[in-house]
Simulated assay, not measured.
Amino acid sequence: MPMDRLFRMSFASIHPLYVAKVERKGRSADDVDTVICWLTGYDRDGLRAAIDDGRDLETFFAEAPHLNPDASLITGVICGVRVEEIEDPLTQRIRYMDKLVDEVARGKKMSSILRGANAGAALADRTTGR
């Protein structure tokens, strides 16, 4: 897929695909939102706004409050490419998000998915709805 086409995809079109993927494996939409919030710094209301306004992935990441500093700890292969070797920052962020959702679907523990450091805060936000 050409990168421009990937960047123009709406977050609203991708989010339900992520949710369906993890629900087939017995996980929840809350788990998807937790990992996306951890990665991007959005809170639940911010994610909902991104879905409701139909922003594309380029805008979604450009307007993200902050990329988690531990995102660089995300490693592995997505679409046949090692995420840590992707040179384009936006493509890498999108693939980080894909990788996190894959880890949720595979049943990894949330503390491991969130790379330990900020896992407690992200899990607390999940239970309080922030």
Rank of each mutant, 00 (worst) to 15 (best):
M1V: 12
M1Y: 11
P2C: 07
P2R: 11
M3D: 11
L6G: 04
L6C: 06
F7H: 07
R8H: 09
S10D: 08
S10M: 12
A12M: 03
S13N: 13
S13E: 13
I14A: 11
H15G: 01
H15L: 15
P16M: 10
L17N: 08
Y18S: 04
K21R: 15
E23D: 04
E23A: 03
R24K: 15
K25G: 00
G26L: 07
A29L: 02
A29I: 00
D30P: 02
D31I: 03
D31Y: 02
D33G: 03
D33Q: 04
V35P: 00
V35D: 00
W38F: 15
T40H: 03
D43N: 15
D43C: 10
R44P: 00
R44W: 08
D45A: 08
D45I: 06
G46Q: 09
G46P: 02
L47V: 06
A49C: 00
A50G: 08
A50Q: 12
I51Y: 09
D52W: 06
D52G: 07
D53I: 10
D56E: 11
F60Y: 07
A62T: 08
A62D: 15
E63V: 05
E63A: 09
A64V: 01
A64S: 08
P65M: 12
P65H: 11
P65W: 13
H66T: 00
L67A: 00
N68H: 14
A71R: 13
A71S: 15
S72K: 15
L73G: 06
L73Q: 14
G76H: 06
V77N: 06
V77I: 10
C79Y: 12
C79W: 11
V81N: 07
V81H: 12
V83T: 08
V83G: 01
E84H: 11
E84F: 07
E85Q: 12
E87Q: 12
E87P: 01
E87L: 09
D88I: 09
P89S: 03
P89L: 02
L90V: 05
L90S: 04
T91A: 10
T91V: 04
R95F: 06
R95N: 05
Y96V: 02
M97T: 05
D98V: 02
K99S: 09
K99I: 03
K99D: 03
D102W: 10
V104S: 00
R106K: 12
R106D: 14
R106E: 15
G107M: 13
K108D: 10
K108G: 06
K108W: 14
K109L: 15
K109R: 15
M110Y: 10
S111R: 15
S111I: 14
S111A: 08
S112Y: 10
I113A: 01
I113G: 03
R115D: 04
R115E: 08
R115M: 15
G116S: 14
G116D: 14
G116F: 14
A119W: 08
A122T: 14
A124S: 07
A124H: 05
D125I: 01
R126F: 01
T127G: 00
T127I: 03
T128G: 06
T128I: 12
